[in-house]
């Protein structure tokens, strides 16, 4: 089967972000960017499906600015066969991204699309579900295990309180949770080889979709700072403070 895997370029998860002084957005100038951690897990799962002989071709796709090609090259170095870049400088949110991805799905006809469960910048957790709705496919969100069984897909999902297993008709959409797998690192020779793998660039106009966000970002501000606390010297002092100062235990 053909597997499509969607990746997003986001701020590196170790970076402590800063809000712009005019409160218009988060400041991303000169900040280290990387592939969204959940997307790394999606790429890893697609590559493992290929290594097990389940997937015949792995196609990586992203929607975003020119620089996002770095993340596509990373996906290629990790084992994707080719890449598609839907290039736009618009501020794209989940619905716009899902619409662009739906067009790519229409063209490529993959039997399985794997996305991360959420991007660590917008924290939306929407795109995979929206893509499933737009393509009329079943969805297996927050997957911690994925197994192909004939023409169905068995997906174990992380839900509040435990795990749930569902069976999905193929073609289907899956979003990855953290425990699905542990992504590998790209090796230097693979990084070199990835530079020669095909990477198609398309525009939203060519695909006939409107990707610009209809949500207006009114203001971005830092969260309320917590007041600096105190260090206590002993368990007795801690219990006393909790009882008599914070009054959270009796």
């Amino acid at each position: 089967m053909k597997v499509l895997v969607a990746v997003k370029r986001v701020i590196d998860y170790n970076v402590k972000i800063r809000v712009k002084p005019d409160n218009s957005d988060v400041d991303l100038t000169n900040v280290k960017m990387a592939m969204n951690p959940f997307c790394e897990i999606a790429v890893e799962e697609a590559v493992r499906l290929k290594e097990r002989g389940v997937a015949t071709e792995v196609v990586a796709v992203t929607v975003g600015p020119k620089a996002a090609q770095e993340q596509l090259r990373t996906a290629l170095a990790l084992g994707a066969d080719r890449a598609i870049h839907v290039q736009t400088d618009e501020r794209v949110e989940s619905l716009g991204a899902a619409k662009a991805l739906a067009k790519v799905v229409e063209e490529e006809q993959p039997e399985l699309v794997i996305l991360g469960k959420q991007a660590i910048d917008s924290d939306n957790n929407q795109t995979g579900q929206m893509l499933a709705a737009l393509t009329g496919r079943a969805q297996g969100t927050f997957a911690s295990a994925v197994e192909v069984e004939g023409d169905a897909l068995k997906v174990t999902r992380e839900i509040d309180g435990g795990l749930q297993t569902v069976s999905l008709a193929l073609p289907a959409i899956v979003t990855t949770d953290l425990r699905l797998n542990e992504p590998r690192y790209a090796k230097l020779p693979d990084i070199m080889k990835a530079k020669k793998k095909p990477l198609d660039v398309k525009t939203p106009e060519e695909l006939g979709v409107e990707v610009a966000s209809r949500l207006k970002l009114v203001r971005v501000e830092p969260p309320a700072e917590r007041q600096g606390g105190v260090k206590v010297g002993s368990v007795d002092e801690l219990v006393d403070k909790l009882k008599n100062e914070a009054k959270v235990i009796s």
Partner: peptide, 17 residues
Amino acid sequence: KRPIYAGNAIATVQSED
């Protein structure tokens, strides 16, 4: 209002839908 970037920023967002 909703948190973004793991709660390290709070966005005020308006929906025109």
